[in-house]
Structures are given as C-alpha cells and as structure tokens.
C-alpha cells in the first residue's frame, strides 16, 4: 500500500540511520542512556520508557498505553500522556516520529485511514473516546483540529465559520448564527480584517488569514480541546506571530495540543513539551526544563539540532 504512512516509514528509517551513525561516535552512551531512561519507581513512566512528567495537573485528556499500527508498521509505541485543562502542550520530534499520528488519535481522525489500528485507552474528561457508544462525530465537535495547510472550504468566509454550528444545530436562528460567526472571527483576531467582506470566498484571503479563519471555524463549534498540526509551517513570521498570540489567548478557554517543528515556537507557546522519537514518547516535561535541561540524550540531540 503506497500511502502517506509508507513515506513516514521511510522517513523513520532515515532518522534511524542517522541515529546509528551517531551511536557510532558515542559508543559509550547506551549504558548511560539506559541509566537515565530507567523508569523511576512510580508507575507513571513504565509503559514505554518515557522520562519526565507524563501526568498533568488537572488532567483533562489522558492517553494510556496508546499503540498505533498502520498495517505492519508500528507507528506509536506505548505512549502515555496526560493533557491538562487550559494547558498548551507542544509535541516535537523529527519527521515521521509519530507526533501527528498521536495527535490524530485524540480526535479519531485515524479512523479514516483503513489500515490504522489504535489500541490503548484515551479518555476525554473521564470518557473513553474509543468506546463503542461514542460517535466520532460527537467527539470531533468537542476536540477541534487545525491543520498544517490552511484548508478553508471553497465557500464564503461567513459560511466557513458557520458550517460547524450549522451541522451541529448550535444556532436557533440567523441572528444567533451571526453572533457565533462574529464572536469566533473576533476571537481568532480576524473580524477587523474581514467584517466588511464576509461573503467573499475564504480562499481569497492570505495564507495567515486563512489559517486564522480555520481557527475561527474550529472555535465556532466551541470545542474543549484544540489540536493543531503544525499550524504555522506554511506561514510567514508575521502571520506566525499572530497565530502564536492567538494561541496564548485561546489557552484561557481551551486545552491546546500543538505539533510543531519549530523549537522556538514550542518554547514560546507551550507550558509542556513532549518529545517523540520513532514512535516512542521519549520525554515529557515543563517547557523550560526540556529546553534548558533535557534529561535524555535523544531529546538533547534533537533540541540542539543534531537530529531531525
């Protein structure tokens, strides 16, 4: 099956090779590494070999022993991670390490990939999101997602934002819908720029505006968690800065999980950082600790630019 996952696998192989080469020059490391990575006495880090604080204060979204297979490929291995209320957590790691896959587990977007198999438990506010009684449609209304490439619908700006409220029947009448649309655009910091041209196509906006439109569209459904898959990778620095500011504001109301390739961005926006490598969750900790004092060699290599 030629699929995006296959490409990911190749990327994994590449980074593995790089790692082996590095292993060559630092042959003494495995033991020290092992020592560092040995799970502490608490059972927190036992599944996989995650180091640091996988538990969050005030946990809201909890992943427990999550494994993802794409056919024969084991893309996520025993990942346990908690995400707190009003917390911004950044998932970092080299390409193909599984951070996007993990993100897509959190709103069951992997369901759309036929070969994907997710095991383990993911609880949203105490409810198993993979249980049979839970409709992914209801879940995705609670866990919104912003994608890497801005993907507004080829509809008007208004209809883009109104789409979610419309399909879920959130607004009783037109004026209520207007209110939701305006409020969402305002919270996404876009209202000023577009309020006079709400009936123009969403695709006519600039890249940064489009991405903010996508964020407005997501928050119009009033989700509890927002997943962001490299939301700024296609944007220029100014648009990126605006989105980062926006994330800051949004974190007052939402839990945000962001996948990013930019260490600076992770440092700027997140309270906690999780480092993924080859499907393993290597290290999770407060952002400052990860960037100033990583506990594993792999994390250190990555954040100093030696992997990825």
């Amino acid at each position: 099956m030629a699929s995006p996952e296959f490409n990911k696998l190749q990327a994994m192989d590449e980074s593995q090779n790089k790692l082996r080469q590095q292993g060559g020059e630092t042959s003494a490391r495995p033991t020290t590494n092992g020592a560092v990575r040995r799970p502490p006495a608490s059972r927190e880090a036992a599944p996989g070999t995650t180091v640091g604080q996988v538990r969050a204060r005030n946990a809201f979204l909890t992943a427990e022993d999550v494994n993802v297979h794409y056919g024969d490929i084991h893309a996520i291995k025993n990942v346990t991670l908690e995400i707190g209320r009003n917390e911004v957590i950044a998932l970092i790691g080299p390409s193909g390490c599984g951070k996007s896959t993990f993100l897509r587990c959190l709103n069951r977007m992997n369901d759309t990939i036929e070969s994907a198999r997710v095991t383990g438990r993911i609880m949203l506010d105490g409810q198993d999101i993979y249980s049979k009684d839970l409709d992914p449609v209801a879940l995705r209304a609670r866990v919104g997602m912003v994608f890497q490439k801005p993907n507004p619908f080829p509809k008007s700006i208004y209809d883009n934002v109104a789409y979610g409220p419309r399909i879920h029947g959130l607004a009783a009448d037109r004026s209520e819908l207007d209110h939701i649309v305006h409020k969402s655009l305002d919270r996404a910091g876009l209202l000023k720029e577009v309020k006079d041209r709400l009936d123009e196509p969403g695709t006519s906006l600039s890249g940064g505006q489009q991405q903010r439109l996508c964020i407005a569209r997501t928050i119009a459904v009033n989700p509890e968690v927002i997943l962001m898959d490299e939301p700024c990778s296609a944007l220029d620095p100014i648009a990126t800065a605006r989105i980062e500011d926006l994330m800051d504001e949004l974190s007052e109301n939402y839990a945000i999980v962001i996948v990013t390739h930019s260490m600076q961005q992770a440092a700027r926006v997140s309270q906690r950082v999780a480092y993924f490598h080859l499907g393993n969750l290597i290290e999770v900790d407060e952002t400052e600790k990860i960037f100033t004092n990583p506990r594993t060699k792999l994390t250190e290599d990555y954040i100093t630019g030696r992997i990825g």
Binding site: N107, M109, T112, V137, R140, M145, N151, Y163, I167, V221
Partner: peptide, 15 residues
C-alpha cells in the same frame, strides 16, 4: 477533491 477539504469537515464533526 482535495483530501484537506474532507479532513477539515471531518475535523469539525461532520458525518
């Protein structure tokens, strides 16, 4: 039809 459109709608909770 670009898959990104499908994902966007699915992500909003469209069936």
């Amino acid at each position: 039809v670009p898959p990104s459109i499908r994902e966007a709608a699915l992500g909003l909770g469209a069936s």
